[in-house]
Design a protein around this nucleic acid. Sequence first.
DNA 1: CGTACTGTTCGATGATTATCGACGTGTTCG
DNA 2: CGAACACGTCGATAATCATCGAACAGTACG
Lengths: 110, 110
Amino acid sequence: MLIEEMHPATAELRLPKVLAALADPARLLTVRALHRAGESACTRLQQAAGLTISRSTFSHHQRVLREAGVIQVRVRGSERILSLRRDDLDACFPGLLDAVLGTAPEHIGS
Amino acid sequence: MLIEEMHPATAELRLPKVLAALADPARLLTVRALHRAGESACTRLQQAAGLTISRSTFSHHQRVLREAGVIQVRVRGSERILSLRRDDLDACFPGLLDAVLGTAPEHIGS
DNA sequence: CGTACTGTTCGATGATTATCGACGTGTTCG
DNA sequence: CGAACACGTCGATAATCATCGAACAGTACG
């Protein structure tokens, strides 16, 4: 059974949903790691982000980011390659992603 | 009984907490209305933001914004005057507030 | 003092969410 | 084909959260 990967159109992006997606520490680290890596498969990205959560939890976070329009997923073989929707985010929320990516580490952690 | 109003220091501001505070539609509208008004008391601000929620709920939102470091509260007579902590936010998260305030209305609503 | 106004605090409640393990599905490779 | 790998989905659980009304506290004003 092929399940269509949900990717909201650019015009459908909503700020509260994007902010909620970025507000979770695990997802925020994921996005920042994804920015450094350019693009990456799930397991590799989870390691790059330094997340020790279970795979099912990471899958959940990946879904939240995708449904908010923050990341994009494409399939390559048995892997899912994740990448930032940089252009779409910049078009809808100019400066937001840059602000999130540019924030100093001391203002990220607890 | 004087209750100390909780205002985190600038160095204590954390991005996930700020994003979570801004992620709620009511709070997002509040912040944007506060930007337009400059500063405002609770009831007036709630009206300016077009929020039809109860006063206790608005009080809750105001607390979340304050504890995240997004807004500032000072007492004037029987009123509480709310204002944005613009300089502190700009210092910790350059461009973030501008992005949130500058987002077009069609990407705010549902 | 008593009334009106402004706003907070206190449960209570229903909704959302982060997390996990178990299982299923598609892919690659021997 | 069969094993190993990469992920997603399901159901459950515990925690967090948005919301409300009722009660409370401080201020202004007659």
